[in-house]
């Protein structure tokens, strides 16, 4: 991945910045030019909630390039406290213990790396809420 391509998405991937529609209040994430619900184009900056529940998940055993070190890993669709949904990795959990409906919170993590001299890509994963350790 080129540096500009990684860099320009940082506000949305690392701060989970979204665009909230000024007309209908729908939270567009990832951000769009026009609102998905009403088509308006005036937005305010909005930060996604840090907690949510797991709507569905899958365990990846055949990883794409760059994800070999952490295989198997879990991707999940998370519904946040405000109803916004996002797709990310679920981490810090035993594969056997992962359940639809479980409560999750966000955590800043390394996502993947581009070989020995490429950039390291960071982003937000979700983990079970109130970790015991």
């Amino acid at each position: 991945m080129s540096v500009p391509r990684y860099w320009r998405e940082m506000p949305y991937r690392i701060r989970l910045e979204a665009r909230k529609c000024k007309l209908c209040n729908y939270v567009n994430y990832p951000p769009r030019t026009k609102c998905y619900k009403c088509g308006a184009s005036e937005f305010e900056k909005y930060y996604l909630p840090q907690r949510g529940i797991l709507l569905s998940f899958s365990i990846i055993r055949n990883p794409p390039t760059g994800f070999e070190k952490t295989t198997p890993y879990v991707i999940g669709l998370v519904e946040l406290e405000d109803g916004t949904k996002l797709l990310t990795q679920i981490t810090d959990v035993d594969i056997d213990e992962i359940k639809i409906g479980m409560e999750l919170e966000q955590t800043f993590r390394r996502i993947s790396e581009d070989g020995d001299s490429g950039i390291i890509q960071y982003g937000i994963k979700f983990r079970p809420k109130y970790l015991k350790f």
Partner: peptide, 14 residues
């Protein structure tokens, strides 16, 4: 989606 290591099969698995 792909950024987080999702594969096409895994999206359908969801």
């Amino acid at each position: 989606e792909l950024f987080y290591g999702a594969t096409f099969a895994s999206l359908n698995a969801l």
